[in-house]
Design a protein around this nucleic acid. Structure first.
Lengths: 170, 170
DNA sequence: ATAGCCATGTAACCAGTTACATGATTTC
DNA sequence: GAAATCATGTAACTGGTTACATGGCTAT
């Protein structure tokens, strides 16, 4: 972490801009605020927190119940986060299990291929519904236009995938 | 690997259906045939090959230059691959660095936000061009409709993303 | 024949997932 | 106040990336 933050750490620092949080609270906030856009597991959070503290980006408060302490972001932490925000965008490497299977399409039996497409359709229709709901909720409640844009990406992605799905030769 | 194959191993077994290949050749074939649909590094290949051999899915030939031997898929290997093909589709968990940054959109300066969007546009226009070219090549040369469908997914994905990009509030 | 280059294989590292142990809290 | 449940923190493991060492090939 000499040069820059990894995405997980950056996400944590970002979340802590709104005030001190404990590990558990961070996990919860990440789930809500970053939601399906970027996942973050408990293990990752608890692994990164001490590292960030060691770098002086965070300061741990007094341990509460279960040795859980709230972490506060420092000035250095805010600086590191700002640097990350301005740093070059990492490449997007989508890795879709459906595509791998489809790459071997000619080895599939007709039935297996149909099942594969059906499964994919089911999964992505479900995701589409979730993203649509998120969009609707945000439109009513939250004024942050970027959270809305992210959710709309989800909708666009799922729609594009579903449309493409129907073009697969059977 | 008691129950099923992981995606990497499955990809290797799939590639070996066309005949014995060495580690290096497998890497090359993966790059060509699976291309951007599913990446596979040398390290992964060399790690999985002995494991697959130990399971009896592959049989190593006589070592050639540089201790590289061609691996042949066994009947058990073909069975394992067929089982994998028919097994339930894993979920698709896209994880897009752009979305994470955008999730913190309100912390961006206007200039940084513009730069972010510009970078993303550049990256995805480049990807779109590559996928389009792949589609064109395949249309002329390769008769496999599934390879074509995969490449067309690439095009659809990039187009959807680029269209969405322009809707981001500046 | 040698120098430089490329391909091959290895190893160390980092990120992400799953599964577990145990401390707190609620409920009866 | 005991039992069941839930949240918290840890640890082990798997998958993926990066960086390195060295064998073999090519060109002069």
């Amino acid at each position: 972490m000499a040069g820059g933050l990894n995405s997980t750490s950056a996400a944590l620092l970002g979340l802590l801009h709104d005030g001190p949080l404990t590990g558990g609270q961070l996990v919860a906030h990440a789930g809500q605020r970053l939601g399906p856009l970027w996942t973050l597991t408990r293990s990752q959070v608890y692994r990164e927190l001490p590292v960030l503290a060691a770098h002086g980006y965070l300061r741990a408060g007094k341990p509460g119940p279960r040795a859980s302490s709230a972490y506060t972001i420092s000035a250095a932490g805010k600086r590191a986060f700002a640097t990350w925000l301005a740093s070059p965008l990492e490449a997007d490497h989508p890795r879709n299990p459906l595509l791998l299977r489809l790459g071997f399409g000619s080895y599939h039996s007709k039935t297996d291929l149909h099942r594969l497409v059906d499964q994919a359709r089911g999964q992505h229709e479900a995701s589409l519904a979730i993203h649509k709901e998120t969009v609707n909720k945000l439109k009513k409640v939250d004024p942050d236009p970027y959270a809305l844009a992210s959710a709309e990406f989800g909708v666009a992605y799922e729609k594009a995938l579903l449309r493409w799905l129907e073009t697969i030769p059977t």
